[in-house]
Design a protein around this nucleic acid. Structure first.
Lengths: 246, 246
DNA sequence: ACAAAAGTGTTTGTGTTACACCCATGC
DNA sequence: GCATGGGTGTAACACAAACACTTTTGT
């Protein structure tokens, strides 16, 4: 299996259909996105992506792709949009990549076949995931040179329309945040109210009033109040909370 | 082109990817869905569907499929969800259909090829459309025995997961109705406030208070008040309105 | 004059925003 | 005691629901 993992045309995938995952994390008051860098000469960043096996549910494929890079199985994951422009081809990006990597990518029969497979027009299904960054060690796969978290305000330029996909994912996250109560997926098991507020401020990129925010969140009745958290700072110790319906 | 329209495998479509359209209309205080019945022996209803040409945007394909059955080019149309279960196969439904139609569907080489093409697992993208039923004459295509509007509370049993798709489309419509101000796409050019209210009541399947509803809609500032509509009834004549941002 | 339905105004309640104050903590 | 930051209470405001009343129409 690992031998011909580089040959997607032989894997029994649905052709011309792919999945791209926008994996959101939160640290240092900033929303982050997990982005691998491709293991080739040149600066190529691409969202964690993959294809769908013929006997596999699309949602299961997204979960598998996510688990491949995060090691996490039980993660909030939601389909948000299909990107289906006819001009969505890997062609121009791959030509640049091949030009910069003549040694790795020869003219062999296998490579030509794979080249045809991968340069066809692809329709991709966008998923976004919310994970607790502390619980996760990003895992490189064979195609990655590196895989790292980037603050959403300081992303590299990704291939194709991947930057646009991240923007759309963020819009969807904002729309769903209150309705689906999913913000807590980005936080550790326990957290203070201030951490929740700072998370909201990072997601919506605007301040919230401290007292009113506390009231709004507590009125949701989805938090359990635990012991206080003594930091050693010269001020009142904040309560810790835990999300109930996880 | 029309000669081999029945042979999707030769049309240059993306394989294993389809589009299904939930076309909503409104009449007699009821939300309706436009559903064709297949031109075969047996009772087979299926949402207006189609495939995506290799050089065609996915959104353009949805528009084309919609225009094929409605004749309308400029219609509100929105992607709402991908249905991608691996078990989503036409197989069982097609076997029933073939058993009931031995004369139409022989064992020729072409039919076998098409059979293989069409019975593969398909991932489908759901779109929903909002149209003014009065402006539209449903058009049968070669595969239809009939095409008609069905009240959403009195739908036939459709093939595959098409009934579930309609339910999901309705959910999405409800979520988007106020946010995107799209209800007026279901009404004629001019309408009374009562008609808007009855439309909302049909969509949400619950009553709204008359005076508060009027206030809420007028406060949106998207309606232009026109002349009164004299019906001949023994009561005050209602104003007609027109939607502005169309 | 009357019934029917449309239009509008007023009160009530609820939830959000803004402001103010008190409390715990470590120095 | 005091600075710092956390927790809570209250008034002001906006928005939505409930109620009441007035206006227009054809008979």
């Amino acid at each position: 299996m690992s031998q011909n993992l580089h040959y997607p045309s032989e894997q029994g995938y649905i052709a011309q259909l792919s999945i791209d995952c926008v994996i959101f994390g939160y640290r240092d008051r900033q929303l982050h996105v997990l982005v691998p860098k491709l293991n080739f000469n040149g600066e190529f960043w691409a969202l964690p992506s993959g294809f769908v096996y013929n006997d596999e549910d699309v949602d299961a494929a997204a979960t598998r792709i996510l688990q491949d890079r995060t090691g996490l199985a039980d993660v909030y994951l939601d389909q948000f949009r299909v990107f289906g422009k006819a001009a969505r081809t890997n062609l121009s990006f791959l030509e640049k990549l091949i030009a910069l990597n003549p040694d790795k990518l020869g003219e062999g029969i296998n490579n030509r076949k794979e080249y045809e497979w991968i340069t066809r027009r692809f329709v991709t299904i966008g998923y976004y995931a919310l994970v607790d960054m502390n619980k996760l060690v990003p895992k490189q796969n064979e195609l990655d040179q590196s895989i790292d978290w980037y603050p959403i305000k300081d992303l590299p330029v990704l291939i194709l329309d991947h930057n646009e996909m991240i923007a759309t994912a963020l819009e969807t996250l904002r729309e769903n945040l209150d309705r689906k109560l999913i913000a807590f997926n980005l936080l550790p098991e326990t957290f203070t109210m201030k951490e929740v507020q700072e998370l909201y401020e990072a997601i919506f990129d605007r301040p919230f009033a401290r007292n009113n925010f506390q009231k709004k969140i507590l009125d949701l009745n989805v938090l359990e109040r635990l012991d206080k958290k003594f930091t050693g700072a010269a001020n009142k110790a904040p309560y810790l909370y835990r999300f109930l319906n996880r």
